[in-house]
Design a protein around this nucleic acid. Sequence first.
RNA 1: GCGGAAUUAGUUUAGUCUGGUAUGACGUCAGCUUCCCAAGUUGAAGGUCACGGGUUCAAAUCCCGUAUUCCGCACCA
Length: 485
Amino acid sequence: MNYEEVMKLALERGFYFPSCEVYSDASAGFWEYGPSGVGLKNKFLELWRRELIRRDGMMEIDGSQIMSKSVFEASGHLGNFADPIIKCTKCNSTFRADRTIAEITNIEIPENADLIEFDNAIKENKIQCPKCKGNFSSTKKFNMMFKVGIGPQEEEAYLRPETCQSIFVDFPRLFKTMRGKLPLGIAQVGKSFRNEIAPRQSLLRLREFYQAEIEVFCNPGRLDDVEKFTEVENTVIRVQTDAEPISMTCKEALESGIVPNKFVAYYLGILTEFYEKTGIDISKSRFRKLGDKEKAFYAEVAFDFEVETTIGWLELVACNYRADYDLSSHAKMSKEKFEVMDNDEKVLPHVFEISMGIDRSLYTILEHSLKKDEEHERMVLSLKPYLSPVHVGILSLVKKDGLKEKTDEIFLNIKRKFDAFLDHSGAIGRRYRRLDEIGAPFAITVDHQTLEDNTVTIRKRDSMEQSRVNITEIDSILSGSVAFP
RNA sequence: GCGGAAUUAGUUUAGUCUGGUAUGACGUCAGCUUCCCAAGUUGAAGGUCACGGGUUCAAAUCCCGUAUUCCGCACCA
């Protein structure tokens, strides 16, 4: 299904909707999750924990969203996260100073150069607005971080633009107190904040968004010393270096040199296995190897995990080999020691990052799961049962003759164990369709026969098949079907 | 941030040119029906027509500003 149909579902069925929508001064780029969206998100994260965190023996932390200025001085965000911009005094259009100058004059000025260099280049080359030939104002820095003032003195601090800085600054304590051993993965789920110039397309470019980040600390001398690589050597990943993505096993990707070492190949493998379990169509995915110009300022090697949707390729995860960029700069700035012992060797660990955009992932899951069933005139959200916000609908065929009471009783018995939804009202077919749209994989219906022999019908979402089971079997059937893989 | 288009109930939409406080559908709720795959039946709720200002006897409708959404450009570390 396309963006519009997903949007309609999101609004009608409580997946997500605009923030502060009752006020006309609501800002762009902020969206909230409703009950269905939260259900999906929580389960998505539980799957992430199982398939990545627990599988690899990582630890998870939960850091502050507001962090001090020094953190971002060290991380480079205060210097590099800001773009030099110029504004046309006539038509008010904004441009990147470095790019505009390079386009017109072929003069390359690094983006973190002194602002006066851009102004001089503009003056000397008489650069005018490409749109209206107007003159430019002097170069300014636009930083995408939200600044906040702490306490009565309003001391400078920032909302984090990525969650991972907590992981870096917490690394020394965690390694010492949690009996750390390289390679060590530390993960975090939480919100990040970026003052995007043009937020667009609901969950796809937000100013406040969820990330699930993993930083794996490793000994740079032992990147091919990865025993668990055998777990994924035959896992097929899709990699794109030139025009088209190619399917290959992790082993082939490694041997062909496309992926630099076993360490990186292993994580690309388990990441693919994770996404396969979310129901996203992996045949529409690719790890795109980024060129030097596209990479983040801290990345040595970078692969974007992208998935094809009806609005184009969407970047869901950035996989960056950040080397010792972060630890060495935090070490320098804070004067804390970040070296650790790996066997008998003292090393400053390198970092491989798996930075996942949760909101975009959820959108992609919805788009890839939402299907139109023409034959039965219905929309079906074919979520994996373990990701569905509602596991099972508990319905009475009709309300009277004690069926309602019997249905309530069944609901009462399972509602703490499963995400169950009780519904008595309206035509049975309509109730089934409502459940189809929020992705509930099962519906249990109490009818007159239930009162006689204690059996109910259980209906499957995708096939619409029904079978009769005893009430006592419900628990084990559901337990088996909605369990995480 | 620039340019374009749009904004009417939960969703979708008529009405805007030609000013007289709003239409249909779906959905929701309550009842009847007791029917196992929505759209039988009766009834009900739900809209200060995005927000603010102006013109007018009168504004969803005309004018100005703002916000949001979508598209294109730019941006996306």
